Amino acid sequence: MNQHEHYYVPTSSIWPIVGALGLFMIAFGAGHYVPEVTQGKEGFGGWLLLAGLTTIVLMCFGWFGTVIHESMKGLYSAQMDRSFRQGMSWFIFSEVMFFGAFFGALFYARIFAVPWLGGESNNIFTHELLWPDFAGTWPVAATPGGKETEIMPWQGLPLYNTIILLSSSVTVHLAHLSLEKGKRGPLKAWLGLTILLGAAFLFLQAEEYIHAYTEMGLTLHAGIYGNTFFMLTGFHGMHVTLGTLMLLVMWLRILKGHFSPHKHFGFMAASWYWHFVDVVWLCLFVFVYVL
């Protein structure tokens, strides 16, 4: 008789519906919060957005805690491990498509929309009608109101952040190698350094945003350049924040003695995500800051 592999079927859980509720509050709250900020209106959008974020954080602690507890009890089989790997792979693929859409918007603006508005491709009459003084070059440093915007250079903070993220990719890899060799001391040190590098990146990005808003006139209202700049760098910053939190959870689990050289997919999934975030930043640094 063939022996079938054990497969764990979890019991019913409240966390999926809690997560759906949290995401709904985030979307609904953010949609109302943006006009409150940009137009000075009063409303409940900010509080609803905060409630949604709090709900998601509680869901993550509860749901991930359940999964960790089940894993530590030895309920998961090799088949479950393959399921987790497939799930994380598809999640990262969805993130690739997410950023692919935003990079597509950037390329469309640079290759088609801006030259078309500047009078290229036999659209000289449209150019004269819509914006006669517009020069179809990138980055666009002027808005229809005539306000000039400084361009964010790649030197300085963006370059420092690139070095920081590249270094963090190396340190998380060294932490992974230490885990596979059973060296808990270097594992804690390298992973802790990776978390500090992620926090440093976020701090410098906040400094960059403050500098852009207060001294360069580079804001969300600064035309297509300002829109794409903050859209791409802002969403990437959110992903760095998520990745840093994931690594922090892994570090806390390591302090409690979790993971072994042969069973550590939770750590591996977090490191996959961190390498993905680094690759996205390299593309962003080249196409948004350098070119």
Rank of each mutant, 00 (worst) to 15 (best):
E128Q: 10
A200M: 07
P132H: 09
V172N: 03
Q155N: 14
V286Q: 02
P261D: 14
P153H: 06
F64Y: 11
T219H: 08
A212F: 00
F24G: 13
K263E: 15
T55Q: 09
L255P: 03
V9L: 12
I164R: 02
S271N: 08
P144W: 04
F112D: 15
L106Q: 04
F235D: 10
F265H: 15
G65P: 05
N161A: 04
Q79P: 03
H262F: 11
P35C: 06
G74N: 12
M59R: 02
D81L: 14
F276N: 05
W63P: 04
F267I: 05
Y160Q: 09
H69W: 10
M88W: 06
A270V: 02
P261W: 04
K188T: 06
P153D: 09
F61Q: 14
L23D: 09
L165M: 09
M97S: 14
G74D: 11
E70D: 15
M246R: 00
F28R: 00
L48F: 04
S83Y: 08
C60Y: 05
P115R: 03
M59W: 05
Y108H: 10
G45M: 02
F265R: 13
F265K: 11
F28G: 00
P35V: 04
Y209V: 07
I17Y: 11
H262E: 15
F93H: 11
V9Q: 15
C60H: 06
A222E: 01
E215M: 05
A222G: 05
P158A: 06
M238P: 04
T137E: 12
L130N: 08
S271R: 03
V277W: 00
T244Q: 01
I14Q: 09
V279D: 05
E120D: 13
W131M: 05
L255C: 10
A222P: 00
K181R: 14
K188Q: 11
L282I: 10
V279G: 07
S169D: 07
E180C: 04
L248D: 05
V9P: 03
S260P: 10
G22S: 13
M216Q: 14
P35A: 07
M97D: 12
V240P: 00
I254Q: 08
W190Y: 13
D133R: 02
T241C: 11
L157F: 07
F24M: 15
S94G: 08
F61S: 13
E208H: 08
F276I: 05
H69S: 15
L197T: 00
N227K: 05
V114E: 03
L291V: 10
W274Y: 07
S77Y: 03
R85P: 03
P115K: 04
A27H: 02
I164H: 02
P158I: 03
I68S: 10
F112A: 14
H236G: 07
G104R: 06
G185Q: 12
T244N: 02
A105E: 07
L242R: 01
F99T: 09
A212S: 15
W190L: 02
I195M: 09
I92W: 03
L75N: 10
T149R: 00
M72G: 07
R184K: 13
Y213G: 06
Q39D: 15
I56C: 09
V170Y: 03
F107M: 09
L252Y: 08
G29P: 01
